[in-house]
């Protein structure tokens, strides 16, 4: 899994909620941060930053619960690196 991707995602979430203390494994849904607006921003951020397209069947809540799970999603969607 890309640690860089995880850090970038974490930076994005923290920038949106600077008053909160969030680590890479915390469930941001459980923390009550996610509404449909932020979910849309998250998807746009991931697609833009990592140059991937998230298909409908990957738009599941578990893929967006934490920076770790989002980084795993990015890894799955990114072209294989040699």
């Amino acid at each position: 899994m890309s640690g860089n991707a995880k850090d970038q995602i974490l930076d994005f979430v923290r920038a949106r909620y600077p008053q909160a203390e969030i680590d890479e494994t915390q469930d941001i849904f459980a923390l009550g941060f996610v509404n449909s607006l932020f979910a849309m921003e998250l998807v746009m951020f991931i697609e833009k930053t990592f140059e991937v397209t998230i298909p409908n069947d990957e738009l599941k809540i578990d893929n967006f619960r934490s920076a770790t799970s989002m980084a795993e999603l990015v890894d799955r969607l990114s072209p294989a690196r040699v």
Binding site: S36, V43, K60
Partner: peptide, 17 residues
């Protein structure tokens, strides 16, 4: 149209945007 579950709201958010 689009995903069901929590991300279904994104169809609405994106379209209204």
């Amino acid at each position: 149209l689009g995903p069901s579950g929590f991300t279904a709201g994104m169809v609405l958010t994106g379209t209204l945007d």
